[in-house]
Computed example of a mutant assay.
Amino acid sequence: MTRVLDGNAVATSIRDGLSTSIDSLGEQGVTPGLATVLMSDDPSSETYVSMKQRDCEEVGINGIHVEIDVEAPAEELLSTIAELNTDPAVNGILVQLPLPDHVDKRAVLQAIDPMKDVDGFHPENVGLLVAGEPRYKPCTPHGVQKLLEAADVDPDGADAVIVGRSDIVGKPLANLLFQKQQGGNATVTVCHSHTDDLAAKTSAADIVVAAAGVPNLIDETMLAEGATVIDVGVNAVDADTEKGYRLTGDVDFERAKSVADVITPVPGGVGPMTRAMLLYNTVKAAGLQHDISVDLP
């Protein structure tokens, strides 16, 4: 029987553990604080930020939300980040992407204090990750690791193929999976739009992570029998629904399920884990900034 990983259930378990960590910090007078910054009028971005703020409230993190007009100059966003960097009530800063075209994303990410960069995108934190000493693991790759752990899938010695080389998922996940540490030690291949014969790579893998942003890219013909399949993709495709679309992953779920041993659905797989690991990083940041040892789930 194929096991369908319930990301909501795993995320709930992590959030429950974080509540204990937050209580422990509270006993020493510290309440973790997460600032979300929105400079967008995109409904999806507004929804994502709203969900993150709700998550904070539910576990006991102090949520601070700042909205900046989408037409405002980039300097206003940078000034806001500078203020949050020096605010002792703020342990983590998340600037919701994407940003308007007139704003340099890299300049914004570099402006965040690395100690408060709970996304793990600042060059200093990227360097620590590559060096095998991550301060904050990027949320989605860390969530993938936690899902594998929950499924008792050990990457040690496994052949893992990641389809997609983004800075947010593909690159950091490759680093996490091949590091010489628990949750790593895999032999990792990163595939992308220039990869020749993608199916030959994925069909030889024990673990396949689809993160290319292409609906239904991976089907059962591209997988080995008994593979573990983690679908990071979230794509809106036209459908006869009230919204006029439905969400689908990069994996053709029904077809892939016929050969996979473990598989994640979309929605309800990796997505909830990304949000849970943001909370995780915020709690970790609070401990680091106050020099308090915190047990994390």
Rank of each mutant, 00 (worst) to 15 (best):
G26H: 00
A9R: 05
G26Q: 07
D6K: 15
T12G: 09
E27N: 10
A11L: 09
D23Y: 03
T36C: 07
L25N: 04
S24P: 00
A35Q: 07
G17P: 02
Q28W: 01
V30M: 07
L25Y: 08
A11Y: 01
G33M: 10
L38C: 09
T31M: 06
T20W: 00
E27A: 15
I14T: 14
V37T: 10
M39Q: 14
L38I: 14
S40N: 07
A11D: 09
G33F: 13
I14N: 09
T31L: 05
V30D: 05
S13D: 14
Q28L: 09
T31W: 02
P32R: 04
S19I: 13
G33E: 11
T31G: 06
G26W: 00
L34S: 06
S40R: 02
G26D: 10
G26L: 04
G29M: 08
L25S: 01
S21P: 05
T36W: 02
E27D: 15
T36A: 11
A11N: 07
L34A: 06
S24A: 15
P32S: 04
V10P: 08
S24Y: 01
N8E: 15
I22V: 14
P32G: 07
S40T: 08
V30E: 04
R15G: 06
V37F: 06
G33D: 09
M39D: 12
